[in-house]
Structure formats: structure tokens, C-alpha cells
Design a protein around this nucleic acid. Sequence first.
RNA 1: GCCCUCGUAGCUCAGUUGGAUAGAGCGACCGCCUCCUAAGCGGUAGGCCACAGGUUCGAAUCCUGUCGGGGGCACCA
Length: 554
Amino acid sequence: MRDRLRQITEAAVAAAITTGQLAVQDVPPVIIDRPRDKAFGDWSANIAMVLAKQAKKRPLEIAELLAALLAENCDIVAAVEVAPPGFINFRLATPYLTDAVKEIIRLGPEFGKNQAGAGERVQIEFVSANPTGPLHVGHGRWAAVGDALANVMTAAGYKIEREFYVNDFGNQMALFGVSVAARYAQLFGIDEALPEQGYHGAYVTDIAQEIADNEGEKYLKLPAAERHDIFRRHAEEQVIEHIKRVLESFGVVFDIWFSERSLHEAGVIDQVINRLRDSGHVFEQDGAVWLRTTDFGDDKDRVIIRENGQLTYFAADIAYHEDKFERGFDRVINIWGADHHGYVARMKAATSALGYDPDKLEIIIGQLVNLFREGEPLRMSKRTGEMVTFEELLAEVGPDVARYLFLTRSTDSSVDFDIELAKRQSQDNPVYYVQYAHARISSILRRAAERGVALPVAGVADGSLLVEPAELELIKHLLSLRETIEDAALLRAPYRLTKYAEETAAAFHAFYVQCRVITTDEALTQARLTLVQATQIVIKNTLTLIGVSAPERM
RNA sequence: GCCCUCGUAGCUCAGUUGGAUAGAGCGACCGCCUCCUAAGCGGUAGGCCACAGGUUCGAAUCCUGUCGGGGGCACCA
């Protein structure tokens, strides 16, 4: 729709130029937008105002000129109007709208998909929680955002891979192994202290308990180093399995789980550092090896090999991103929590140093989730392990509510999540509002079947019977699914889907109250059933992208 | 101190390459079920778009500064 209008408007501009009515050198891209007020029409273009200066003509004059050209060759538009200070407003033709309803039914699950992404290969890395403990609620948000973004970009014609980077190397992992070992020893009455910086959560004891249950006390005799290593490996395995299971129950499945340790073991980090050294971006100082990230806009240079010879996390991350680009992605998207945003500049700088275009690395910084219960904030401490895990949240509110609420805000703003409010099945809860529309539709279709009313075969019903404002308003909303998917994908803004879902549900509920579907007027019943089916398709497609179920009854 | 981010209705937030009279949900108030699901619909009230300058035909949107909330400034991950 928007594409069509853009094309014909561009054609009108071109025509005006070739006929000499418009003297313009550079034609800026035509932007088709929604008018603020529906009274102005369905779509509008501001191109006349943009061209005014170049063409040395009054905007209104240009608008009149273009409107005249537009009105000639356009069947999808009923009226092209000009409004001061120079807007060109389009009013869609009703026959076009009613025909479009049949098109939605014909396309079904495919309706709304498009090629805005032009087949670009994109990797999205998200969640990437350390395998040293359970997922927290913030991870849940990244899971919802990353997965929905992957869904909507796929629908917009991108080729997407989902990846989880596993930080299974280094101090934290070692400390985790030592912590489990200590708890294990304690289970057998041996007084082994947890390290100062170790992991104190109750889940550490659970893991130790499981090892004790399955394998007894045989590890007690092993030397400490060996024991720590065994426990580290065991604990890591268990935590990753747990993370996978929780994410799967949330409907999020990754294509690739990428191990940091594999980079160390393959020696690729040293290779990448050598490459950077050869290209002159590396220097030594104070006994450490540094990457000169300030050459690429970072605040300060960064250590990649510490004085003690150990690689930093950053070094591994450079090799990891080198690997991503080596795999041939056109674009790489990382979703990070706000607590990592200080890391963005150096990662972009490293990308440049490696010789890749830093704009190919997009980093989405997401604000955190604040948990509440009945308006009271829930304090969370990672250190003591006293916190609501993502798994517990899921158990309380269920995946649909969690996924939906995590996507109701732009990633730039933090989500205040009240557990009691989320559980309450009330109007405070937008997820039910949307699902209810779907359930209502299913109910109408069931009722029609009960009464022996044949469901319309696509294309047969007489669309011209749909003339009520509520009907036409609903149709317009349904048709904008495509633009919504385009915008959500191109702007990396999956939260737009929930907004769209609510608007569509609202348009349906209004229609429902004003227009009875199943009546004695057979032709009208058929036409409205067609519209209802199309609405069901649109709501279901939208909820599917969000990752929320579309219930048949509630 | 420096960097990032946010500041829009009582509350939570939309408003994106600068456009028309500033938008939604919740909350408040007033209405609507003989009827396909009232988990719904309609209406009313509610605004110095944090503040001050600047850019231009036009600024919630872009620039500069100030104030306020959040986050970050490791040879941790």
C-alpha cells in the first residue's frame, strides 16, 4: 500500500520534471506517512514542501500540480486532496479496501510478509547469559526481544540466525567450579569454605547435591585442582541444560550455541591478535598488550593481554566477532543489557581495527526490568542469590504474559513488571485484550458453524456490502500489518508489534459492538464473516511474531 | 569529572531520516448487555512535550547549555 503510493507519487514528480512544470535537480526520496488526523485521509505526502525551496515555487502550488497528475492514473485512491501548508492527502478507494480483505484470506499466514530486508544475512546474538547461574528476569526480556526481532526480520525478508554466546572460560567459571566443590564437601560434613568471591546461591548446593546423589563421595579423594575442574565441567553442563530448557519453555530456540572456550582451544585468539599486530593497531605498555581503540573513537585504549599473560574477555570477544564476520553475515546484531553499554565503543573500535565496517555491527542496548509485587519493588541481590529467577517468573505468570509485557516498551526504556498485575486477568493487562479479540472471533466462527452458516469461500463474498465506518476502519488496520512488519524490522523495534496488535484488537472490538456478524441477511453475513476471518488471520500472524499464543476460547 | 540513555496527561508509555489542532492504555467521572464472549464499547475531564537559547517556512523531534532519574567509566566477565 505505502509502496504503491510512494511509487505513483515518485512517478508524478518525475512527470512534472520532464514536462518542465517543476525545476528540480535532486529529488529527495518520497515519504508517505500517516496524517495526524484521520479527517485528512489515510496517507499523506509532504514532498511538495520539501521541494518548495529548490523549485522556487510555493508548496501549495507544487502540491496542486502533483495532485492533478496523481488523480489521473490511480485506481486505489478515491481522492487526492491538497491541504495547507502543502500536504498531499490520499483517501483510499473503498473497492480497493474490500478487495484487499480477500487478499488477506488468500495469503493467510503469509499475509504481511515482505522483502524489505532484501535477503540480507543477519545474525542476532542475544541472552548470552554466563553459565554460572540461573537466568534472571532481564535475560527473559532479551530472549523475548531477540526472538521477536528475529521473527519480524525473517518476515521482512532477512535471513536470520539466532546465536547464544556461552562464556564458558575464565575466572568466573573457575570460581563457580570451586564453589560447587565446596558445597559438595560440606554435604559430607567437611568444612570447606566458599571462596570470598564465590557463588553463594542455593542453586550451587542443589548442583552439588545432585552430584553427591548420583556419584557419591568418590570425588572427595581427588586433588583439589582436578576436583575443581570436574565440578566446573559438571556444573556448567547442568546450568546450560537448565538455561536451554527454560528458554525452550519460553518458546526461544537458538540455532547456534557458541562456546568461548572453543576460541581459546583453537588458538584463534592469538591469531587475531597477531593480525591486529601486523596491521599496527597493537602496542605494549606496562607489561601488557593493548589494542589502540582510540584510533577508532574509543575513550581509552584497551588491554587484550594482561601483565600476567592471560587474555582478557575483550580479546576473546574480538576473536568471536572476527569469527562472526568470517562466517559471512552481512550484518551482526548484539542485544546487550544497559550494564554493558560502556562496552559498545570498544567493540565497534575493534570491528574497525579488524577491517570491517563498524556499522555492520549493531548493538541494541536494552534497559533493565524492575520487578514489583503489588506496587512494592522486589530487591535483587546477585551476591546472596536472593532474587526472582526468570524460571520462577515464568512459573507465576506464564510465557504469554511474560513475552507480551517484555515487548510493550521500546528497548530504550526500562520495563516495570508487576507480578501480581501481570497475573491478574483484567483490563490492566493488554495481552488478554488482544487474545480476547482472537477468542471472540473464534467464537463467532464456531457459532456460524453451529447454525449451519457456510463459511465464505475466499473471493465469493460481496465486499461492497462492507460500508460501515467501523468496517472500513478495521480493514485499514488489517492492511497496515505489512507496513508494521517493515517498520518493526527496519527500525529493529519489535515492540511496535504489540502496539499494532492492540490497535487492531481495538478496531475489531469496535466493529464487533457496532456490526452484528451473523444475521438473517445472508449476503451481509458472508461479507462480514470474510472480514472476521481476515481479522483472525492478522491477529494470529501478529501474535505469532510476538511469540504469544492465539487462543480459540478464553 | 567524562560518556551513554531517558525526561511528553494523575500513573505507565507511543510519537524515528523535522510537518497539520499533541496520542494510547490505565486511573477518575458519566453512560451501554432481551442480542455472535461486558476480559468488551461509547463519552467527559486531564498538557508550559523538564528548563533556557539556537538552526528554519515549520521543532516533542536537530544543535548547545542547565537541571533531574537510570546506567557505564578494570590488566572482572
